[in-house]
């Protein structure tokens, strides 16, 4: 039993369920960022199919359609950003998905490996996205 005076004790941390409104008060570690971005890219791709399938349709319909598709994509920076975003989403979702499955097999679960591979997933997908973008624009 300690006799420390009560007024000297620090405010105790409060643990509770947090809602959306509390999110700004928490710093999300890179492992958490990797997880939520995997989720966001997944949903974005499912929704993005509504753009990707018509693009495939247009590119295969006729030579005129193919050229029109190229004009839309390369002549318009909004289309370019959307397309590059979807390309990043595909690559990141794949890389992070492979990492996730390796973790299903009980590997890369310690803090250092989980952090390192989360960072590596971002670096690798940005590099691959940039390489593909550079290759198709050249």
């Amino acid at each position: 039993m300690s006799d420390q005076p009560l007024q000297k004790t620090k405010a105790r941390p409060v643990y509770r369920n947090i809602g959306m409104g509390d999110l700004a008060n928490y710093r999300l570690p890179i492992i958490g960022v990797a997880s939520i971005v995997h989720r966001i890219t997944g949903v974005a791709l499912f929704v993005g199919l509504i753009v990707l399938l018509p693009m495939l349709h247009m590119s295969l319909k006729s030579e005129a359609g193919f050229e029109a598709f190229r004009t839309i994509v390369w002549g318009n920076w909004i289309a370019k950003i959307v397309l590059l975003g979807l390309l990043f989403a595909i690559v990141y979702h794949l890389v992070a998905g492979v990492r996730h499955m390796i973790q299903d097999a009980n590997k890369w679960l310690d803090l250092a490996a989980a952090r390192g591979t989360a960072t590596a997933a971002f670096v690798a997908s940005i590099v691959v996205t940039a390489l593909v973008a550079w290759r198709i624009m050249a």
Binding site: V91, V128, L131, V132, R135, I136, M137, A138
Partner: peptide, 9 residues
């Protein structure tokens, strides 16, 4: 991705 990287657009 491999096809795009090898042959380009």
């Amino acid at each position: 991705i491999a096809l795009l990287l090898i042959y380009g657009a």
